[in-house]
Write a protein that binds this DNA or RNA. Structure first.
Lengths: 253, 253
DNA sequence: CAGTGGTCTAGACCACAAG
DNA sequence: TTGTGGTCTAGACCACTGG
């Protein structure tokens, strides 16, 4: 190598048949990192099979295999005749979607709305600090709200957002809006995946009042950590829903 | 076609390129039905890629694609150098596995045991009749038991089995045994998949006594329908577990 | 060693979308 | 018409398993 005109290291990452990892797996990792680096953006088309095949110097069959893996993981979706696109996570699988609204009816037609009860800024400690990976003493924006559907209060929740990322958030009216598009469009933090934990409990007096149920009635706690690009946690949420409206289903195969 | 020597219709089902369905998908269906018909049995090896390719008159690549689909569905598993095998369902994903035993420890080392509280034969009605698809007035074997781990009573459950299929079951000692191998080996009914429903609740006096918790404490109800070959329901189960030991996790991508 | 599945190639033809 | 992904083929070579 001479001093000038050395090839920039990050110009075009390549696959290498001499590495023990299969080529399609190397390709999976490269594509994943392109998405994380925002070189290929959510909902946008990525290069075609033929282009990827040419750029990375592997056969179309190998590209197909890599894209199949990422499609199965829900990171990409493909449309015949149109192209391959970067997917968003599918919150149809969230626990929150399993609260039934009126005797088992599907909620698809109804408009969800929410009522904000409280806004504050507090230091993030304990579980919040841990989930959001905050520095000691770092502050979070805390929102308390109740989510209402067809006039039925269904879910009462705390939402915690790192103030470092979301400063100015309190100026936004969120009573009719979805939160995740705001995280993405206003703060540049798209939610690309999330994890949830479910636990049962019983209603205390405040919860029972807000959800219009009896104290001591069964409730469901759902804890959610939502992650942005690069697995950066951007939201911690603690939701409490009516147990009498909750039924969750799995298939075991 | 002449009168004698007509080809037996069921000798060798074949794929047909003229059908609109892709060949690999036809192959998926054929393999699935072989398993349902018990021509290829649980845990046993099925023919190799080369054999399937030859028998069905498609390329090895097409066979690979069909086997990949069935592997992703959990119906087959493959081992390099050994072969392709018919899988059993993986109950690691069952809700029942999410009851923690002692402050989050993994239960893998411990031996589960169960204590049978009651055995009876009753007419199957309502939800039981519906889940097991019973004729009107058809009887079921009903078992009440408590499942214990490390001396901690964790789950209290009713199990319902169609008497038509499981006559003689009451003679078997099930306190130390797993039920599903008995269904398979003694009654010829392997469980090939199951579905579960989860609901929260609060402990009544009997439940609280059996599970050694307070009346009114949170509990989890799990309803399970287990299916044998050909989607025949063979077991309906209604389990109640300690809510304070339950925590369920999902990832959303 | 022979037989298995795992990876990879280079091509062909098709169905679908959009201009 | 062009370009996309979806299906299918025929073959090569490799890695792993078990006798």
């Amino acid at each position: 190598m001479n001093g000038r005109a050395t090839r920039p290291i990050f110009l075009e990452p390549q696959v290498d048949p001499r590495r023990p990892q299969p080529l399609y797996q190397q390709l999976v990792d490269l594509i994943r990192s392109r998405i994380t680096m925002q070189q290929w953006k959510l909902d946008e088309m990525i290069p075609s099979e033929n282009e990827l095949s040419a750029v990375y110097g592997v056969s179309v069959g190998t590209v197909k295999k890599a894209l199949a893996v990422l499609t199965a993981e829900g990171i990409l979706y493909r449309r015949q005749g149109k192209g391959t696109f970067v997917a968003r996570p599918d919150f149809k699988r969230s626990f929150i979607r399993f609260f039934r609204f009126n005797s088992g009816e599907e909620p698809d037609g109804a408009i969800p709305c929410s009522q904000v009860l409280e806004y504050s800024v507090i230091p993030g400690v304990g579980r919040i600090q841990n989930a959001l990976r905050l520095e000691t003493g770092e502050k979070v924006l805390r929102i308390r709200r109740v989510r209402i559907l067809r006039k039925v209060p269904l879910v009462l929740e705390w939402i915690y957002l790192p103030q470092r990322i979301f400063s100015g958030f309190e100026k936004i009216d969120i009573s009719q809006a979805l939160l995740y598009p705001i995280y993405d469009e206003t703060f540049g933090q798209p939610v690309v995946w999330a994890e949830e934990f479910l636990e049962p409990g019983i209603a205390d007096s405040e919860t029972s009042e807000r959800l219009e149920i009896q104290p001591g009635a069964p409730i469901i706690h759902v804890e959610r950590i939502a992650y942005s690009l690069g697995d950066r946690p951007v939201e911690y949420r603690n939701s409490t829903g009516r147990g009498d409206r909750f039924r969750y289903h799995v298939e075991i195969r």
